Every structure is written in structure tokens, then in C-alpha cells.
Lab assay of single mutants.
Amino acid sequence: RNRTTFTSYQLEELEKVFQKTHYPDVYAREQLAMRTDLTEARVQVWFQNRRAKWRK
């Protein structure tokens, strides 16, 4: 699989949710996936990576 390149809009939306919660539930991830036109799996992985970056 190729690396996903996120648009500025997608990143904005993802970051907005990340500010509210670092662990969005499956419903929140589904909503976000629909809004950003990404798969729920991509959203889930983005949050995993974002949490790792945040911990550093």
C-alpha cells in the first residue's frame, strides 16, 4: 500500500478531533472518515501515529 497523503482539510479535521480526544471511539472515527473521505482504518492509524508523536 502506498503512503496516504492527507490534504490540509483532512489534517485540520483530524487535528480538531485530536484536540478534543486522543482516543476517539469507533463512532467518532466513522464520522470523521466520512467527513474527510478517508477509510476508518486510515483514521485509526493516523490517531495511533499522532499519539506517538504527541508522547515524544
Score class of each variant (00 low, 15 high):
R1G: 12
N2L: 06
N2A: 06
N2G: 11
R3W: 12
R3F: 15
R3T: 15
R3H: 08
R3C: 15
R3Q: 11
T5K: 10
T5G: 14
T5N: 14
T5A: 10
T5C: 10
F6D: 04
F6A: 06
F6M: 13
T7V: 04
S8T: 14
S8Q: 15
S8D: 11
S8V: 11
S8C: 11
S8P: 12
Y9G: 08
Q10T: 03
L11T: 06
E12R: 06
E13H: 01
E13M: 10
E13Q: 08
L14W: 00
L14E: 00
L14M: 12
L14P: 01
L14C: 09
E15N: 03
K16Y: 03
K16Q: 06
V17N: 04
V17H: 08
V17A: 14
Q19G: 08
Q19P: 00
Q19W: 07
Q19L: 12
Q19S: 10
Q19N: 11
K20I: 08
K20F: 09
T21I: 07
T21H: 14
T21M: 05
H22A: 11
H22T: 04
H22G: 04
H22P: 14
H22C: 08
H22I: 11
Y23C: 08
Y23I: 02
Y23Q: 04
P24F: 01
P24I: 01
D25C: 05
D25W: 00
V26L: 13
V26H: 10
V26F: 12
V26E: 06
V26N: 14
V26M: 09
V26G: 15
Y27I: 15
Y27M: 07
Y27S: 11
Y27P: 13
A28N: 09
A28F: 05
A28L: 14
R29F: 07
R29L: 14
R29T: 14
R29P: 00
R29Q: 07
R29I: 15
R29H: 05
R29N: 02
E30F: 07
E30L: 15
E30H: 15
Q31F: 04
Q31L: 09
Q31P: 01
Q31W: 06
L32K: 00
L32Y: 01
L32C: 05
L32V: 11
L32T: 03
A33M: 08
A33I: 11
M34E: 12
M34W: 11
M34A: 14
R35M: 04
R35K: 08
R35D: 06
R35T: 01
R35E: 05
T36D: 01
T36G: 02
T36R: 01
T36E: 01
L38R: 03
L38M: 06
T39M: 04
T39G: 05
T39E: 08
E40V: 11
E40S: 12
E40Q: 14
A41H: 11
A41F: 07
R42P: 02
V43C: 10
V43T: 03
V43F: 06
Q44G: 13
Q44K: 09
Q44H: 13
Q44D: 14
V45Q: 10
V45W: 11
V45A: 13
W46I: 02
W46N: 02
W46L: 01
W46H: 00
F47R: 00
F47T: 04
F47L: 05
Q48D: 15
Q48C: 11
Q48R: 11
Q48F: 06
N49M: 09
N49W: 06
N49L: 10
N49Y: 09
N49Q: 10
R50F: 00
R50E: 10
R50S: 04
R51F: 15
R51Y: 04
R51V: 05
A52L: 07
A52N: 12
A52M: 10
K53N: 13
K53W: 08
K53Q: 10
W54E: 15
W54N: 15
W54Q: 12
W54M: 15
R55F: 06
R55Q: 09
R55V: 14
K56W: 10
